[in-house]
Design a protein around this nucleic acid. Structure first.
Lengths: 215, 215
DNA sequence: CGAATAGTTGACCGATGTCAATGAAGGTGG
DNA sequence: CCACCTTCATTGACATCGGTCAACTATTCG
């Protein structure tokens, strides 16, 4: 299920806002690796030694329990960076949710890139800690509302929000089952808070109400 | 409820294992600030500009929802470091759980300490992401078992484990109520997996069983 | 020693999970 | 381009785990 990380493809027409303060000079102009839908970018236990920036598409980061229960700790959209680890081993799985282009930055051992990596790591830490509040203390409606607000903000705050991931992915991110996610979507629709344009995109009708629900 | 961060106290007799690879040369020999039980070390919204190393005692990091629900994202024990933020503002509260001594490292704006901070941030990130799995996908017994295993490991893997925090703190860390935490402790005791020596310390009788429960 | 605080236990309830049936959407081959 | 099939999502009935409320017990601190 490994992606062919050799193929070079041209950049997509829609621009990607750079999340990095300055261009990385350690490895200039990395080629973009293409990962088909569902393919693995790296696996738990593998040797780490690079980080990754999404050019287009979307990525899920997750962990598994022995019996198959899955927790998605993060989604990464275009422009976002992931894959750095505390030691030289990956502690999580990374998979392409859709057809996804990823720029891989390998770093030579010894090269000091902590200045560039630290803000990214701290951002990720804050994000993870905020997600802990959602999983630990919010009910199903609040979780879904928080998720939709977050996705909307990361897409520029537009009314229409694209959800590149399945209901199962959303459930595994929010600590819910697909049935509960589906029921909450229906409730939000019935309340007139959102509209379901199709399975993978929604329109936020009452932004304030949604924001209030997410606490 | 602010602690007097001026008082200097002598180091405790029991040694503190350093979690920092090398001594921080930016601000050598920081005094230790003392925080009485329950006092605030910093608050959400406050200006950040330092990080903190626990000398003795224990610290809780948490966030609140508007209605008072609390999620503790981390406990920090002797030797551990906390308090760095993605921007110049604290996003969480930090409180002393018990009488606690903290070494405060202020950094001048501009000073590049990313080399020292990055490994700490990455460790925290991995910890937070692993905690997401617990909150998102594990039931009450598994959560408490995982908590006890973690506390035991952080205290050197001894049979006897000190729990410096209250049942309420444990509940707010694990996304459970105090009643559920208490019931799980009782069940683990009845199964002969642990013994309750007193309210704040337990003995692990069947370490393998406990580890298996935590998945 | 007594009051206040923290923890335990029990009865009951409700939110969310489980299991199952139905419906919608997307991909593939004719 | 359409029909079929597979996959994904929705909806309903029911079960269960953990929360809520309340009473009781233990511990700590003045």
């Amino acid at each position: 299920m490994h992606a062919q990380s050799t193929s070079r493809i041209s950049l997509p027409s829609h621009s990607v806002q750079p999340s990095l303060p300055t261009a990385f000079d350690l490895t200039p102009l990395q080629p973009v690796s293409f990962f088909p839908s569902g393919s693995e970018i790296y696996a738990q236990g593998e040797k780490a030694g690079a980080f990754y920036q999404v050019e287009f598409g979307a990525v899920r980061i997750y962990r598994l329990l022995a019996d198959g229960r899955r927790q998605i700790s993060a989604f990464h959209l275009a422009g976002e960076t992931f894959g750095f680890e505390a030691d030289t081993t990956h502690h999580f799985f990374a998979e392409a949710i859709n057809a996804t282009g990823v720029r891989v930055f390998r770093f030579a051992t010894g090269a000091d890139i902590s200045g560039q990596l630290l803000p990214l790591a701290l951002k990720g830490l804050t994000r993870a800690q905020e997600h802990l509040l959602v999983l630990g203390r919010q009910n199903a409606i609040e979780r879904v509302a928080a998720f939709l607000v977050d996705m909307a903000e990361r897409q520029g705050g537009l009314r229409q929000v694209e959800l590149p991931m399945s209901r199962m992915d959303i459930g595994d991110y929010l600590g819910l089952t697909i049935e509960t996610v589906s029921r909450v979507f229906t409730r939000l629709k019935d309340k007139g808070v959102i509209r379901l344009l199709n399975l993978r995109s929604i329109e936020i009708i009452k932004h304030d109400a949604l924001h209030a629900m997410s606490e």
